[in-house]
Design a protein around this nucleic acid. Structure first.
Lengths: 214, 214
DNA sequence: TAGATTGTTAATCGATTAACAATC
DNA sequence: TAGATTGTTAATCGATTAACAATC
């Protein structure tokens, strides 16, 4: 359990386990075996047992895994429900959409403010929040402990915004601008790159068409 | 070149190459070697040459790769600029944000209509589009050849919408609902799972904190 | 206890990296 | 031509899968 370092491949499967277990729980299922998970999720059963065992022995021989317990454990590992505070920088399309998406709050990721530098935008109400001026950001971060900075500004400003957020104590960056934002060791960064997934879709569509024409 | 099957790992690096080459081109760089790409992108140079060689010999010994040529080739592979038609189903937060994001159109992914089933929404103007009733969808797809269906409806409707789109000739699905939408062989599906990336961010933040406290 | 299923070690597979001959 | 850098084969590394002993 918790050997030196968990591989990225494993970490990226955790949210999938979380989603799957939420479904099971909602359906009233109490226990589940790795072989059933394997069938439902199209993963190898050994892999599932191995993945889960990176974090602890959550199962019981001869029984399997208790659904609600396992779900709770995975939530704890991922930090779901741990209560993080986040600010959104950039109140354009994506910024506003993220602000309005209530589900994040339910899972403990609380958006406490949104900022923009467009005078047209500043002061407007969006999803129960007044859009604040970028110039208020330093003061705001001084007065409020903020964990996560959500970057939803145009590409050319993204790195600067990232640097500012980090210098003011934010330790996690969730970036939606189409650049790879960088930060010093100790700061966690996830670059989303929405359009990458669209490119991959169109790549696969071409592949599919190619195969059909053979 | 084009051996039987390109691995997922390679395909997922292609958009990164595309972004990097776009930067180089914008900066006026004419040629680039795998070793320079390696430094800039934090990838192994062998891996880069190998990746590119999956699709053809785009380089030249002793010279390297011509930036604009290589970028064009990767665009062709990914289908960027190939002109696809897409509809958005669901005019909520995400649906509207995607509709307003003009950059997709520039790259040949044209959004031709948006649908919703909320009477409040139907008829409203969003980003130059009138929101249409879901009931118009079959007729619309009969009259217009649509390649991509963008699913931005609540989770519980996602699979049904996917099935409908596919039955009416759509061959690519870009799904933003937090479920794994499924489709028959020959149909390409990309499930985005935005919140997964937030979970991974918070996982890494916890890891970072843990390491610091040691 | 017998049966089921985990946790874990060993075997396999595939992806990454190193090395180098081909060639511009 | 000599130097540079690719394309490609061979070596390494890590992740996935199979197998099975431990144990509930």
């Amino acid at each position: 359990m918790q050997d030196s370092r968990i591989s990225d491949a494993v970490v990226h499967r955790l949210p999938r386990y979380y989603r799957y277990l939420s479904e099971l729980e909602a359906a009233g299922v109490e226990r589940v075996s790795s072989s059933r998970m394997s069938e439902d999720m199209n993963l190898n059963a050994s892999q599932i047992r191995r993945d889960l065992n990176c974090f602890g022995g959550f199962g019981q021989q001869g029984y399997g895994y208790q659904v609600s317990r396992l779900k709770q454990e995975i939530m704890k590992i991922l930090g779901i429900g741990a209560s993080y505070k986040a600010v959104i920088v950039g109140a354009g399309n994506i910024g506003q959409a993220l602000l309005r998406y209530r589900h994040f709050g339910d899972e403990g990721y609380h958006i406490v403010a949104i900022f923009d530098n467009d005078p047209e935008m500043i002061g407007r109400e969006v999803g129960n929040h007044r859009i604040r001026a970028m110039s208020e950001l330093p003061q705001f971060l001084k007065e409020n402990k903020v964990d996560i900075g959500i970057i939803a500004v145009p590409k050319r400003y993204a790195q600067q915004v990232a640097d500012d957020l980090v210098s003011m104590g934010v330790t996690g960056l969730w970036n939606f601008a189409p650049v790879d934002v960088e930060a010093r060791r100790g700061i966690s960064v996830v670059n989303v790159h929405l359009s990458d997934s669209l490119y991959i879709l169109s790549y696969r569509m071409r592949e599919n068409r190619k195969n059909e024409n053979n």
